[in-house]
Design a protein around this nucleic acid. Sequence first.
RNA 1: GCCCCGGUGGUGUAGCCCGGUCAAACAUGCGGGCCUUUCGAGCCCGCGCCCCGGGUUCAAAUCCCGGCCGGGGCACCA
Length: 510
Amino acid sequence: MQEAKLREIYPEFFEERRTKKEEKKSLPPLPKAEKGKVVTRFAPNPDGAFHLGNARAAILSHEYARIYGGKFILRFDDTDPKVKRPEPKFYEWIKEDLEWLGFKVDEIHIASDRLEIYYDYAEKLIKMGKAYVCTCKPEKFRELRDKGIACPHREEPVEVQLERWRKMLSGEYKEGEAVVRIKTDLKHPNPAVRDWPALRIIDDPNHPRTGNKYRVWPLYNFASAIDDHELGVTHIFRGQEHAENETRQRYVYEYFGWEYPVTVHHGRLSIEGVILSKSKTRKGIQEGKYLGWDDPRLGTIRALKRRGIRPEAIRELIIEVGLKRSDTTISWDNLAAINRRIVEPIANRYFFVADPIPMYVEEAKELVAEIPLHPDYPERGTRKLKFKPGKPVYVSKDDMELFKPGNFVRLKDLFNVEILEASEDGIKARFHSVEYEVARENRWRMVHWVTEGRPCEVWVPEGDDLVIRAGVLESDADVKVDDIVQFERFGFVRIDEVKDGKVRAIFAHK
RNA sequence: GCCCCGGUGGUGUAGCCCGGUCAAACAUGCGGGCCUUUCGAGCCCGCGCCCCGGGUUCAAAUCCCGGCCGGGGCACCA
């Protein structure tokens, strides 16, 4: 348990904590955190859209910065122009998504602007004899490393190293021919930690921000180690996959005599049945399987937003999941429950009939149903649905099992009818009574309906499928793009598009 | 293979450091009831969990050892 580890290092802090638990679900205090002095950061690679998995580190970082009145930094770790290539739009999207989540970003830094800084530190380390330029073939180096043997370049004099470093910068070495390594314990139990690489050459980076200006690029561990210190970061939140990187980075901190930030490693967060992986998402988009990074089936922040998930719900979820180090897969029910609580009071009600079937009602008189937009908030007003004799009422195929001859149903807020005949082409019914009480006493079921509707489709993400439910929405429904409303007896939806009188909505949850 | 983590109801989390107050808490889910012009919400009742085996102890979810299971890392990715 990582808390136990933190306790070892900061026992005094946990004493405090004991006295004040008892509180509602919230984040535990942070070790070594002083009011006003906490600096956290979120450091994504803008090579894909921000998703729920990334949101864990981001929200924890931001939340603690706020709790302690500190600073939250957004840093784009865009130092791999080759394998995990950044794309310009993602820099913007990440900023937009953070804003949507309600973040206050105090500073923004971009690693690709900071290459000279990394070069300076690299040179310092070389001069200090703590780093060297290795020109071994990667396989050769790996072989030596695994045996715990120094590579031939390791102990060469500083002047030779500096000369090679200059050659790296000047372009005399090509990609793959030279790399700067940080010296570590060659007998470190984990071979992967031994003399880890800090900077490498990329011949034709064509970086979206710096083009071909720089050919020597830092690797994540080096850039991150330098930046966290340079930017004054005090607390780092990141996935447990980074736990071993801490070991590497600490060497740099030790050489410079810096203090390593407090780190909290959390497990991976995912939602059942939802794809988060950037590479899988990209592939799916390319193959035409997904409509884009905001396809409602995906777990990107943009997709969740599009589905009508509120930012507060995401925040609550992350805080509830907390600092746990094991991976967690939350269920949709869980997120939906949180979101429902938030959205329920704001969502106005409308009738949407999926797969409409006409119902012809005999012996009924003209009647106008006046229904509140929200049952708990009558002050919001009402909507009026007119019934005219001779014209059909549309009901949903989903309710077909209720429409058996001899059954009685109540058309909600209108009147009660007896079913005479029923098929998927149409239903014949006879007016029975208008009073709700009659339906209630007889325990007749209630269905929603529409007389004059406007075309509407609802996209319902179901795992990896996107089911499109076509139907009609009550004609006067006052819906605008981005509204979150409840289609009664259908579920909460977000209005995605209103065009030429046609409405498209995306299903959030029941 | 080597190196890290983790394992509490169907799901997610709390409790574990400092053993008793924990036949275990909260949320969600599921079942039932009340209320109610739908659904939902709300209120009430119920269902259901400490991975396994040893050990220490008067006492173990909690400490120790072993096992099993799961996740992550071992890149000139982040």
